[in-house]
Simulated assay, not measured.
Amino acid sequence: MHFSVLGQTKAQLENQRKKYKSEIAQLNRLLSTEVKKEKNALEYLNDINQKIDVRNKLINTINLEAKLLLNAISKNETKLNKLNKNLEVLKADYAEMIYKSYKSKSQQSRAMFLLSSQNFYQAYKRLEYMKQYTKFRKKQGEEIEVQKQVIEKLNDSLLYQKKVKDTLVLVEKNQKKEIESDKKKQESLIATIKKKEGKYKRELRKKVKEDKIIAARIDKIIKEEIAKANRIARAKNKDKKTVSKTNTKFILSPEAKALAAKFEQNKGKLPWPVNEGLIVRRFGVQPHPIFPGITISSPGVHFATSEGSDAKAIFDGEVLNVLVGSGGTKNVMIRHGSYITSYNNLESAYVKKGDPIATGQKIGSIFKDKVKNKTILIFVLFKNTTRLNPASWMAKK
């Protein structure tokens, strides 16, 4: 953590703080704010855990930012003390000069000083000295004025930095209060869940099983689509020996190869499939946050977004298929050469199989679960039949 403080600039920490504040605002807007039904307890607990996690990250960032500000304030105060000492010395020298000048200020004294010279050369030197002395007095007066302005600016900077630090401390206190409130809800929910642990575990295992069935069905459909596309490719190619007979990889035309290469070049820069949203479940196998021994397998990334939102294509391509789930929700699959993007949990689809697709094109409205009170898009990425982590391919937000 010590090296993290040294490695991060004030601007980086400020941007990080703004990001977490924005994420908290999104969490409050897009996720559940109350348990409407008992069976939503696990879902709501997961939302609370996510809110606590982001609030802790925000507090940590605020602490780092406050440390950086305290360090800057300390350095500025040292600089201010040094400037004040320099100013006192300048003032003392100037006062002494003014006093001496006052004692010999009359024109008669100056004239006598020149006339009492033993020769012309001495008189010339004395005249030059008088000119230099006058110039020095003026310069010292200007230096005092400059030092005063520097000190005034530094004072203003210190006051501003102290106000910023006080504001950060206040934000931190408010976030800690929110965490305490969330933790009370968390404890209450955990107690409720523990009373009916067996029931929740059964429901959870059932959901895990259903997810596996859906994932297997999608895998099967993708293999069928690859086989179908490859049959067409083989039929178009007269020299059958040069065409692979595999059905686990797309046979690519020169155009499809170019599209796949372009897709790969944009790794880490691809847009999100939603205009506004946050990731509520990540890719891969994860331990359940409450029940040890139970794992959740996510084939892709789950985005929570606002009601009425549309899913958008992340890259140019062609609609490979539009699937309809058991609950009536739709899944639009778009092919990008050897890559496939899957947009699942749609209320309706705006496209059909074979349609050409452009980056950013709206492809369907996202379904809102009235029971969970959430609008979730399940976004999955494949290379041929292999699932990839979409988060590695999308731009960071």
Rank of each mutant, 00 (worst) to 15 (best):
I179Q: 03
Q175C: 05
T192N: 09
Q149M: 12
K153L: 07
Q161N: 09
K195W: 10
Q186P: 07
E145L: 15
N155F: 01
N155E: 08
E178H: 05
E172I: 01
I144E: 05
T167C: 02
E197P: 05
Y160T: 10
K183E: 05
E172Y: 06
E180P: 00
N155K: 04
K199I: 10
V150S: 12
I144T: 07
K183V: 03
Q186M: 14
E172S: 07
I151K: 02
K196F: 08
Q186D: 09
S188C: 05
I151C: 08
K183F: 02
L189A: 07
K194H: 02
V171R: 04
E172A: 02
Q175L: 13
E187D: 14
L189T: 03
K162Q: 12
I144A: 04
E152D: 10
Q147P: 02
K162A: 09
D166C: 03
K195A: 14
D182P: 04
E197Y: 13
T192D: 03
I179T: 01
L159A: 07
I179H: 01
L159I: 08
D166S: 12
K185A: 02
T167E: 15
K183R: 08
E143P: 00
G198M: 06
V150P: 03
N174V: 12
G198W: 02
V164Q: 10
V169Q: 14
K194G: 00
T192V: 06
L158R: 01
K148M: 14
I144W: 03
K177T: 15
S188E: 13
Q186E: 15
T192A: 08
D182L: 12
E143Q: 15
K184R: 11
E178I: 09
D166Y: 05
T192S: 11
I193W: 03
L170Q: 14
E178T: 08
K173D: 11
A191V: 09
V171M: 06
A191F: 08
G198P: 00
N174I: 10
T167R: 09
V146H: 01
K173M: 12
K194R: 04
D156M: 04
T192P: 00
Q161G: 02
K184E: 09
V171N: 06
L154H: 02
K163D: 13
E187P: 00
E178Q: 12
K148I: 09
V171Q: 11
L158F: 02
I151M: 03
K195D: 11
S157Y: 02
K199D: 11
K199G: 00
T167N: 10
E172M: 03
E197V: 12
L158S: 01
G198H: 10
G198C: 01
E178D: 13
V150L: 15
V146T: 09
K184W: 02
K177Y: 09
I151V: 14
L189C: 06
I144C: 03
K165W: 07
V146N: 08
K177C: 03
L154K: 04
Q147S: 13
N174Q: 15
K195P: 00
D166N: 12
K176R: 15
L189G: 02
E180Y: 06
K148C: 05
Q186F: 11
I144N: 03
K173Y: 06
D182M: 05
D156L: 05
I190S: 01
V171P: 01
K185F: 03
Q147T: 13
L170E: 13
V169S: 13
Q186T: 02
E172V: 01
Q149G: 09
I193L: 07
K195Y: 07
V146G: 00
K199N: 13
T167F: 06
V146W: 00
K195Q: 14
L154N: 06
V146K: 07
